[in-house]
Simulated scan of single mutants.
Amino acid sequence: MIRGLYTSAYGMLEESRRMDVISNNLANVNTTAFKKDSAVLESFPDILMTRINDVASKTNPSGRLGKMQPGSDVGEIFTYYTQGQLANTGGSLDMAFKNSDNAFFTVGVPGAEGEFIQYYTRDGAFTLNAYNELVTKEGYAVLGENGVITLSGEDFTVAEDGTVYQNGEVLDKLLIKSFSDTTTLRKLGSNLVETTDLTEEEPFSGMVMQGFIEQSNVNVIKEMVDMIAVTRAYEANQKVLQAQDGTLERAVNEVGAIR
């Protein structure tokens, strides 16, 4: 009976974590190029149960009561990097990738010593700062192959391979990174990701579309259906826990009572 309480409680914790992921997806449904997350469940490992402060029993000197399987738990958060729909804005500062799920713009985030730390984003809703540098909405510099891209205005063009032209001349080329396995990337927040030791690059094979932005790949209807399913699963675990608690209460107060 006590084991059943633990199983129900772990089930509620699992559904709570799943709800957090779904809520975050829905909160970012209008975030440019946001990539949806999904909670991956796995079997929770067996737990060795022991009696606390009661290890000197003659019949059980180790105090061990055996193993318990609490059920499942959230093993990892998987991110879907599938391309979202492209929206035509007509703005020269807006850019998006087409026919590529694993290509990213490179941005430079200032480090502790003033150096640039390279991170990556699919969010191509760029702007110009006071120094006419191409930056993200958060103010991070968009990097080209020659460093920070500095423009003399919004009248410029970007070719499909990322080459930036202004006044009829090649100004720079976007530093585009394409990764063979996006599951090795790690989200940082602010629509940025970073690489890990397992990340490998591959040649960029898509197209850069100027005047477009990539929308979130979150399916609102599916997320709402998942939210309802998670809510019902949470309530089911809650009812089972309450039933077991009521049975335990009767066992302690009525069955064990001395008459």
Rank of each mutant, 00 (worst) to 15 (best):
T7K: 07
G11T: 00
M12P: 10
L13P: 01
V21F: 13
V21D: 06
N25A: 01
K35W: 05
K35G: 01
V40S: 08
F44E: 03
I47V: 05
R51I: 00
I52Y: 13
I52W: 07
D54A: 12
S57K: 09
T59V: 05
R64T: 07
Q69K: 06
G71Y: 03
V74P: 10
E76H: 03
F78Y: 14
N88D: 12
N99K: 12
S100D: 14
F104G: 08
F105H: 12
G111M: 08
G114R: 07
E115T: 09
T121R: 09
R122V: 01
D123R: 14
N129W: 12
V135A: 09
K137S: 14
A141M: 14
A141N: 10
G144K: 05
E145F: 08
V148P: 10
A159P: 04
E160G: 01
G162P: 02
V164N: 08
Q166D: 05
N167K: 10
G168F: 03
G168C: 01
L171F: 08
L174T: 00
I176H: 08
K187R: 11
S190V: 01
N191K: 11
L192G: 06
V193W: 10
T195N: 05
L198C: 00
P203A: 05
F204A: 06
S216T: 05
N219H: 11
Y234V: 03
G246F: 07
T247R: 15
L248D: 14
R250S: 14
A251M: 15
V255I: 15
A257P: 05
